[in-house]
Design a protein around this nucleic acid. Structure first.
Lengths: 340, 340
DNA sequence: TTGAAAGCGCTAACAA
DNA sequence: TTGTTAGCGCTTTCAA
């Protein structure tokens, strides 16, 4: 069995308390004792039992991340990078990362409640916020530490980090109009998702400001997958008066739309312009390379973890709410830049 | 503060012991007491403190997953799906999932050692095994429960699940040769990765068997990314005598290769054949749709979790080692199936 | 059918 | 500078 404090104490001939304090480098322990304790501890391979420490300290030193999955075939390049950002940072800050996966719904909320009640985590990172978000309502209500990536509809009186989706789609709208596209359609993920809603509104106002209003018949709503982007693009392309550009709500859907367009024999970037949102690494190497809005997803993961840890430790956040200004990355899928 | 067993006991007017047993449905507690205890427990919202339970039970009920990341821009559609499989299954089986991210190397091994020593997890899932894998050596040596997704070089005397990469690439080789490709090149991830090594060998023997030996000058080694696939494909295409087909070691690299070929003005599926490995969802919707080897990655995640939990509980595995026979998914990137 | 007591491994207030 | 004692919340002998 693993060595405990008692084993060390016995071997050193001191009390458990002294050993504990020696290892924590308290300054009321004599240097000689400290040295001896440390030596013996390494000798017999003592490592503290985290569970015991946590029970005593009444803290779990753990961050919870409940990933909203949509169906088993959940493949989102987005998340792996986000996860890396969170994982590396929480690790660096001395926190464990407890990951769980649930489709949005009752079971998801219960998962949050269960983690809170059983004291498994000290705080949550909430991703993919919805307009009405019961997770966030719940956490606010019980005043449990969390930081959201994204916002909700109405009051946002909690710490979050978000990219200004609305502004981002505004850039897209301007870009497309500038290039001469007049029949601009869009494909969005479920508008229950706050960011989808904001992206749609951003596109709408951006187009309106540019004098090319968004037509309702050009709006399609699917889910987040490339499959869905493909299907919805087909729908748009089959209209008697199809759009000449499609702004997709994320890169994956844009890929699907490109696939649909190519399949119809259209030359993307010439016959039709297509844009994405996220700038996942694949966007650059798609063909044609995707014009899209960049999200520094790894850094967002870092930031959100740092904010949460401060929140947990009751430290003041220099910025409780962070709104990043997105950048448009112009590539080839709208033909503005036919040179590689 | 959260309600404890003592709170319930006090309210019920019974001892902590009785309450504990009542809640665990021991049959030496009177039905009336049980009912009362349950009622009070729900009333005051009692939830057991997981930490305390675990300390007492001397188990963490937690599965560890240390994801080997390669650099911050770690974006792998593969992992999100795998994670969903693991997450859902371990959850269902009553286990938490502790996730950490580390690039392969010393820090990675230390992460394993630390999780073991501090008793944070009851077992590991090891992914992306390497030919010489110090994680696996370590876990075998200390006889700590784990299940690997993948194998290592030499003796494999531990539970694993793997897809028969070698056979898969054999299928690829046959397919390409059958279609008339004669100058077949390949792009692999680092050959330190066991699966890369096996895929290369599978391709080599498959080609040899089909009478078209693999030339050394047609072999390129990069990392797992599409960027790398792109670069290595460029290298191959710039040879004075470039290959007419490229078998990539995974889908992401195949995407990069396709991008490179298209950029050179080649028609993929006509002028050049390109294949992948993994069959991530994007493969189907790439353009051209990618011919590749399917891996049921979600199911592998499920299976590996189930195996691990059995292992942890010291139950016998019906199959200690599982080798899945892969299937070739023929799409358009080799031109065999130019109809969509 | 129930309860007292011990103990999981650790930390910390208090005394010595 | 060190040790005694209590306690984190729970489970489980053992005795009543």
């Amino acid at each position: 069995m693993a060595a405990t404090l008692r084993d060390v104490a016995k071997k050193v001939g001191k009390s458990v308390t002294t050993v504990s304090r020696a290892l924590h480098d308290y300054d009321d322990v004599s240097p000689e004792t400290k040295a001896l304790v440390r030596k013996v501890a390494t000798e017999i391979g003592y490592r503290p039992n985290t569970l015991a420490q946590r029970l005593q300290k009444q803290t779990s030193d753990t961050i919870g991340l409940i990933i909203p999955t949509f169906g088993p075939r959940f493949s989102d390049p987005f998340f792996s990078e986000f996860l890396a950002g969170i994982g590396n940072t929480s690790n660096r800050l001395g926190y464990d990362l407890l990951v769980s996966t649930h489709p949005p719904g009752d079971a998801e909320l219960e998962a949050y409640q269960h983690m809170v009640a059983s004291r498994k985590v000290d705080g949550f990172i909430c991703v993919r916020t919805r307009r009405q978000d019961d997770r966030i309502d719940y956490l606010c209500e019980i005043d449990f530490p969390f930081v959201a990536f994204g916002r909700v509809e109405g009051e946002n009186d909690f710490p979050y980090i978000d990219e200004d989706s609305s502004y981002g789609m505004n850039l897209v709208a301007q870009h497309l109009v500038q290039l001469g596209y007049k029949q601009i359609g869009c494909i969005m993920p479920s508008l229950e998702l706050m960011f989808a809603q904001m992206r749609l509104e951003g596109l709408r106002t951006g187009m309106a400001e540019s004098g090319v209003p968004l037509k309702d018949e050009y709006i399609r709503v699917g889910d987040l997958t490339q499959r869905s982007g493909y299907q919805k693009a087909i729908e748009l392309l089959e209209l008697r008066n199809p759009p000449d550009a499609i702004a997709a709500g994320n890169d994956l859907m844009a890929f699907g739309a490109i696939s649909a367009a190519l399949e119809r024999g259209l030359e993307v970037g010439v016959d039709i312009g297509i844009t994405g949102f996220d700038d996942i690494p694949l966007a650059e190497h798609f063909h044609p390379a995707l014009t899209t809005i960049h999200q520094p997803i790894y850094q967002i993961g870092e930031l959100v973890s740092e904010m949460l840890v401060k929140r947990i430790k009751n430290q003041l956040l220099d910025q409780k709410q962070i709104l990043l200004k997105p950048k448009l990355v112009v590539r080839n899928s709208c033909g503005s830049n036919s040179k590689t």
